[in-house]
């Protein structure tokens, strides 16, 4: 077996900046690097990424591999996979980190299959066992009802995707130094089997979910798209935005891009108002980091009350109008 050493982050750059999830990965990767006394490297792909490469060093990376002749967003998965495999051969890391977002969800399993690696998706914590030196991978399972801790001692490399918000984003330190290595990679175009016809970003009116300080979220209890008008009104008064659970998404009441939970966004606003949401662990996986969680539900037995800081038992149609009025008055 080849000698694998160090940690490689598959990073993402958007509009010339290292993304938040990548900064979170740097925090996690830096800790592992220090514990193992090994180097932390990152792969950045896209046009005009030299500034981002310097930024990555300030955030705590030792080696930055840059590939700047391929636009990241329009890269078909097979092309990206070939690129990562190529960098992998150069860096020979023992641990590869991805974010549990669009790219990581898609690429990490393919890479594991190709490299014969071990893999653990959607981890919330990574640690080095002080005795065995194994990588301990903690991951919510059964929709978040339980947490499993895995180790894969005999298999190298170990690929992990990390859930967003599992670590604080790394902060820059301009005194840090590191190497930036531009890499020219020639991809054999015949590996590309899927043609990416278009990438569409759906316009989000107002505040983005991952930046919102206040989120008013509705679930199956809203019972149709009309009810969301009340939620929107409350969100607007509080300077926040709207989120949904899987039911309004699957029923087509609201756009899928608003989904919060295991299969959607992970958020941590200051205030999260859960309206008509029963509190399935799969949904809580996306909002349990909220500083204050308020639940409004007509079922006093609803699981959401186990997780909430404040609760009201009642029909949202009766609860929201006076809440909106009172909030308006208090805001004045």
């Amino acid at each position: 077996m080849a000698e694998y050493k160090g940690i490689l982050i598959c990073g993402e750059v958007r509009e010339g900046k290292i993304t938040t999830i990548t900064r979170e990965l740097i925090t996690t990767g830096r800790k592992l690097s220090d514990d193992l006394n090994q180097r932390l490297s990152i792969l950045l792909i896209g046009e005009n990424i030299q500034e981002a490469a310097k930024e990555a060093v300030f955030f705590g990376v030792d080696v930055v591999y840059t590939v700047d002749d391929i636009p990241f967003a329009e890269s078909p998965p097979e092309q990206y996979l070939a690129l990562v495999s190529n960098i992998f051969q150069k860096a020979a890391p023992s641990i590869v980190l991805f974010g549990q977002a669009d790219m990581g969800r898609d690429i990490a399993p393919r890479l594991a299959a190709r490299l014969g690696a071990s893999i653990c998706m959607d981890c919330v914590e990574l640690a080095i066992d002080p005795e065995t030196r194994s990588l301990l991978q903690s991951k919510p399972v059964y929709g978040g009802n339980a947490v499993a801790v895995w180790a894969s001692d005999d298999v190298q490399p170990q690929i992990v995707t990390m859930r967003p918000r599992a670590a604080a984003p790394a902060e820059p330190d301009p005194s840090r130094e590191g190497e930036i290595l531009p890499v020219a990679v020639k991809i054999d175009e015949s590996v590309i089997k899927s043609i990416l016809i278009e990438t569409v970003k759906e316009e989000v009116k107002g505040i983005r979910l991952d930046e919102a300080k206040v989120i008013v979220a509705g679930g199956g209890g809203i019972d149709g798209k009309e009810g969301f008008e009340l939620l929107k009104e409350l969100a607007q008064i509080l300077g926040g935005t709207i989120g949904i659970t899987r039911v309004p998404c699957d029923e087509g009441w609201m756009p899928a891009g608003l989904e919060i939970g295991q299969t959607g966004h992970v958020v941590n606003p200051d205030l999260y108002v859960a309206v008509g949401i029963s509190g399935a662990p799969q949904h809580l996986a996306g909002c349990s980091g909220s500083k204050c969680l308020v639940a409004i539900n007509k079922n006093p037995e609803a699981h959401i009350f186990e997780e909430a800081d404040f609760g009201i038992v009642g029909d949202y149609r009766e609860a929201l109008p006076p809440l909106i009025e009172k909030c308006k008055a208090l805001k004045k």
Partner: peptide, 15 residues
């Protein structure tokens, strides 16, 4: 199996 399950637990809820 490429991984071994070393621990399985229900997270504590303190709220």
């Amino acid at each position: 199996s490429r991984r071994k399950l070393v621990k399985l637990f229900i997270p504590k809820r303190e709220k």
